[in-house]
Design a protein around this nucleic acid. Structure first.
Lengths: 340, 340
DNA sequence: ACGTTCTGATGAAACGATTAACCATCCGTT
DNA sequence: AACGGATGGTTAATCGTTTCATCAGAACGT
């Protein structure tokens, strides 16, 4: 009765239903011409044996796969989590699922992840690429038929993505404008943009827009590339604050970096929102809990994920989707009565 | 030269190296007897063609798969993320990777996830089960050979897991003891344990230990099951505080629930750490940012993930691993001068 | 010169599903 | 009686790898 059978195969089901393997396959997938009585019998047999298709065999034959690969930069960043969730919801609706790997800001691992996912035969690939010309770029031409979507990166016509891949990300231009407008309305005359290390994140568009806007609005602009490590960022921010002649206003590229500014301020006995100002990107869950709350640029991250999946599952001409961003004012920007 | 070939297969490599498919396979996997010159030729051919094994075909033949399935409860909980990271690090070391699905606290989805992962032919399955007898239980006997590890749940000898599956989780007994000891040392005479909704999380062990310890130390004990939704928890906590005759001390089963207590307190104009006391579980990143910081029970979550992977990849007799927990005092517990 | 071992290589059978190409009835028409 | 068309079913090829069984020579000892 209960021999230690290794695995229930379609052959077993067919045998039990007294029918050929082909007919069993047709019956279960509702594809060929098969008598309704037979369908019933096969279904019952499958249920009784607790049969599960071996998706690998199926894929091998059909070449199709209901799985998408995702390469994110970091497993611990709630930002990516929400994106993943957005992707997952849509994937789930179409019966697919996600193969998630993280590059951990390491080009070696990013490259390995890409190889791996392609070997797994995913139906499409989403990636939050590292830097400007990581392995991503070299790797693309080798898989001419694989739909690829890059997210959280600036579309760069002459950059890594070329004609083939769609991009989805925040509307960086609008975001920077919002931030600067917010500062300007409160009497600020200069701003410092704090960016992730060169070549790690993919936020090249923001710098450009920052300079453009500052010029347009007559703000004095500074751009700083900073280390990724939290403590180092805090140190650097403290450095700048100490050296600053007047009021220092930071526009930082993530909430993570934003909290570092808080730490720096605390170390110097300065109060954020009075002595120092910060506008951040991302709106992580922690940001509302800070004191004062972190004024930040928010983007619907699940929506972003949804767009990524959409582009992956309905391939067409590549798009460059820029999602709207809005500013959440929590008071981390000071109001200056007179120019600093 | 560059015909739109669909995919580079081992046959192509073999052809280019002027050798049979078998020999090519042996050469690449270093398995059979093959001349070193041939190995070199095949390797070069593979590199030139940018060949990638089709893991599905390989798996179909070998029956083995370098992927493990994970079913977590929620994609957005940083707790699980750290666990995943722990798993991923070990998996990565052995060249395997993770198939992650989330049940979203829905038994239907948990069940679907299990089916799916087993159809994918994973080499093992880790699950943070929902409730006491979810689909998990019914599903187990059908796959007698699949290694399964449950995490973040109390091992329950007569419960869902039986003899087959290992469990990994916090040492709930020790955790509750720590919390109560902390309260007692500060003059508290009663405690309220706030638990997740019946049948959702898997923390049955804590309640038991809570009663035992309270009895032993002469504390008056109350246990509350609460809704999962944040706002509802806050409402309930406020209710209790208002009705309370003396000082209210909560031991809550997650930091998530803990912050709800903060909100309730704020709504009633009470100060946590003075008028109300809280000890939580998990130590999420947000907890240190609250004011006052949330006193919480911390567990090395990556270590937990590491253990899960270990048990999955080196199957043996089932173990019930309980990881040490320590208390992080951030001041959310008041010191009472005299008994309340 | 002849059997024996050893080396390097090959052919073909799996793995478990899908599916194109046939085949056998049976029913109704001409 | 012969034929055309449904209808329900079967056979066998195929997907890309791995691996078992086999084989042609070379090397070697007697």
């Amino acid at each position: 009765m209960s021999a230690p059978r290794q695995r229930v195969t379609l052959r077993d089901v067919a045998a039990r239903a007294g029918v050929s393997v082909a007919q069993a396959s047709f019956a279960l997938n509702g594809r060929g011409r098969v008598a309704s009585a037979t369908v019933e019998r096969v279904r019952r047999a499958a249920a009784e044996l607790d049969y599960q298709v071996d998706t690998r065999a199926r894929q091998l034959r059909t070449g199709q796969r209901a799985a998408y690969g995702v390469v994110i930069r970091n497993m611990r960043n709630p930002y990516f989590l929400d994106v993943l969730r957005g992707m997952e919801v849509r994937a789930h609706r179409q019966g697919a699922f996600l193969l998630i790997l993280s590059s951990d800001y390491d080009v070696e691992r990013e490259s390995a992840a890409l190889r791996r996912l392609s070997a797994e035969g995913v139906a499409g690939l989403a990636i939050a690429p590292i830097g400007r010309r990581g392995p991503f770029r070299d790797w693309l031409p080798g898989r001419p038929h694989l739909p690829v979507v890059a997210f959280n990166c600036t579309p760069d016509p002459e950059g890594p993505f070329g004609e083939r891949v769609s991009t989805v990300g925040p509307d960086d231009g609008a975001a920077i404008s919002l931030a600067l407008e917010h500062l300007r309305a409160r009497g600020h005359r200069d701003a410092t943009l704090v960016m992730a290390p060169e070549g790690l994140a993919a936020d090249w568009g923001r710098e450009e827009e920052f300079h453009r806007r500052c010029a347009e609005w007559g703000l004095s602009a500074t751009v700083v590339r900073c280390p990724l490590d939290h403590a180092d960022v805090a140190r650097m921010a403290a450095e700048r604050m100490r050296a600053a002649s007047g009021h220092e206003a930071f526009v930082v590229n993530s909430d993570h970096l934003g909290t570092a500014v808080y730490e720096a301020a605390r170390a110097l006995d300065l109060r954020v929102g009075r002595d120092v100002s910060v506008v951040a990107h991302d709106d992580l869950p922690t940001s509302a809990l800070l004191d004062p709350g972190l004024t930040t640029l928010r983007l619907d991250r699940e929506l972003l994920g949804d767009h990524v999946m959409r582009l992956l599952s309905e391939p067409g001409a590549p798009e460059a989707v820029r999602l709207p961003v809005h500013l959440i004012d929590r008071g981390s920007v000071a109001t200056l009565s007179r120019p600093s």
